[in-house]
Design a protein around this nucleic acid. Structure first.
Lengths: 326, 326
DNA sequence: CAAATTTGTGCAAACGTTTGTATATTTGCG
DNA sequence: CGCAAATATACAAACGTTTGCACAAATTTG
């Protein structure tokens, strides 16, 4: 491949001049610049970023570490981050942890080896705390998103789970449902705790009795079981902290031929809009979270929390006239 | 950050020895190696991959270029490729083209600037042909997957669309359906042409009349319209070359209260398993395609085509007793 | 025991840039 | 015209690693 030294030799000038010409330094004559650019194009020159980064002591790569790339949520976060970062001249190196602590540690070390400009991280479930993160990064700027360790410095991007769940529950009340339960997630995760609190607050503010709560309910099967209990307890609606548990709840409604029952899920997985009746869902905003994470990095990854609003997608499952059939 | 020069100074030996010790050269005494490793750990040394890559003239990064990362298909391909490549000591740099020619060209140039070890590519719709690819890559090994330009050299990973569509159509016949139409995709894409051919061959082999064909039918709306026409034409089943058009077809079935009508889609989008009745679908195998693409790269990106089998996921929509309701 | 071989280490150049400083050239101005 | 200032280019060192070659010490061989 062509180097600046070759261009310099071909033009009989110094490589430093070629370097300056190509990087737009004002210290080179317009005429020389044009000659260099012409010769560079002629020889098919492309700057060797590896050498450039070594000399400059920094890289234009930003690492993104996620549990699993094929999860809709994370691939959308990556998409949002990439849009901003590419615009700013950065490239994106993606690592998966598969929810494992050891893979997360290795990913962080790899990124450090590349002397990346920054790291955007959503930690693995397998990481009980964040004590390994800073040592592994050795000073590289850190932005955490969605799953954050509050004790670490740097920027954090999270959803407003409390407000979202409040809104979803309020929506069910507004539709005329009167006894609302909740399928809550794992209580060791901040996000699920916040959703539960938002749900409770909405009921309190409406002067309603607290409804039945089904914790650790996050997959289709547990949603199905919990919904049967909720029906037995006289519920006419459920706010579910996940979409898959809400799907299980709908299985139970169909099986029992229940009518006038409202469901709102959380996460706005693509199937919620595609099923029939379609499912109302409290949408996370992964693309925007990715954008915000990237912007936080560009802003220097200062300590601080950015809250990305959730959005309630109102569809058929929370309409009191929706018919549930087998 | 610590360098090998610092380790060498601390031990009073030469940097070359440190380098050799850390990279496992047999030319260094076991005792020295241990001393180096101890000191490296003590100083928190991490190899500077940028410098290493520059000196070695190659990089351990493989570029993956896809239209859109948040599409389920592509994120799974990436996941499969990453699994293999990480195992082999490579890292993955991901670029999106958003189906645009200019973004694809820029991505390829960026990867070349990084002197990546290889590129895995599924080209943008906006790229009418592949004439820009080789010049942009300047000799970097190329593996194409899913969307391939046959005229380019290198490895190609594709699905066996013909066999898959044949199988799907055969399955509908086996279920007792007798007049089968097809929602075909865009005929400027090799994959869709192959699916149409497979469908036709299955009917021929069964001694059936050719059914009605609805080309350019790939989204929900066009699927809905085409299904209404198919119903008017007396069809009792459809093989759809896409899942979204199949979803539209189901909309039409529900609306018209049709019974005894079979549907098989293609791509096995996650919603197909989650809707009710669930949709039978001809699954692409993106994870395996990613794996194969990575393996092809590791094997030197030799000229040749690898065909990844599709798998028919049999669910309720192709069962003759499934009830379609509003 | 000298010569040949093996083993371990050091020296220094290279990878392709960038950049501080020095030098050469041009320009401006009294 | 002469000198200072501005402009343009050259020189050379650095970034941190890898690696061919040279060399010294230890070991084997005839």
């Amino acid at each position: 491949m062509t180097t600046i030294t070759e261009i310099a030799a071909a033009l009989g000038i110094n490589q430093a001049t070629v370097s300056r010409a190509l990087s737009g330094s004002p210290r080179v004559k317009e005429e020389t610049r044009r000659a260099v650019e012409r010769k560079a194009a002629e020889l098919g020159y492309e700057r060797n970023v590896v050498a450039s980064n070594l000399r400059k002591g920094r890289s234009d790569i930003v690492g993104i570490v996620v549990p699993r790339i094929h999860r809709e949520f994370f691939s959308n976060v990556i998409g949002g981050a990439e849009a901003v970062l590419n615009e700013a001249g950065y490239n994106v190196l993606i690592c998966q942890t598969h929810e494992r602590f050891d893979a997360e540690l290795k990913a962080l070390q790899t990124l450090r080896n590349y002397r990346v400009a920054g790291v955007l991280l959503s930690h693995a479930i397998g990481s009980a705390d964040g004590s390994h993160i800073l040592p592994a990064l050795g000073g590289i700027p850190l932005v955490q998103f969605d799953r954050v360790f509050s004790e670490l410095p740097g920027s954090k991007i999270v959803s407003n789970n409390f407000d979202g769940a409040y809104l979803a529950t309020r929506h069910l009340l507004d539709q005329g449902f009167r006894r609302i339960g909740t399928l809550a997630g794992y209580m060791n995760s901040e996000a699920y705790v916040q959703r539960l609190e938002g749900y409770r607050q909405a009921l309190r503010d409406a002067g309603m009795q607290p409804g039945p709560e089904y914790p650790d309910t996050i997959v289709r099967e547990t949603g199905y079981e919990a919904c049967k209990k909720a029906l037995a307890a006289g519920c006419d609606a459920l706010y579910s902290a996940g979409d898959f548990s809400a799907l299980g709840a709908i299985d139970a409604l169909r099986e029992n031929g229940v009518q006038r029952f409202g469901i709102v899920g959380t996460a706005n997985e693509s199937f919620t809009a595609l099923m029939s009746p379609s499912m109302s869902s409290l949408a996370l905003n992964p693309y925007e979270m990715g954008r915000q994470a990237a912007l936080a990095f560009l802003g220097g990854a200062q300590d601080g929390v950015v809250v990305v609003p959730m959005e309630l997608k109102i569809r058929e499952s929370s309409n009191i006239n929706t018919i549930w059939q087998k």
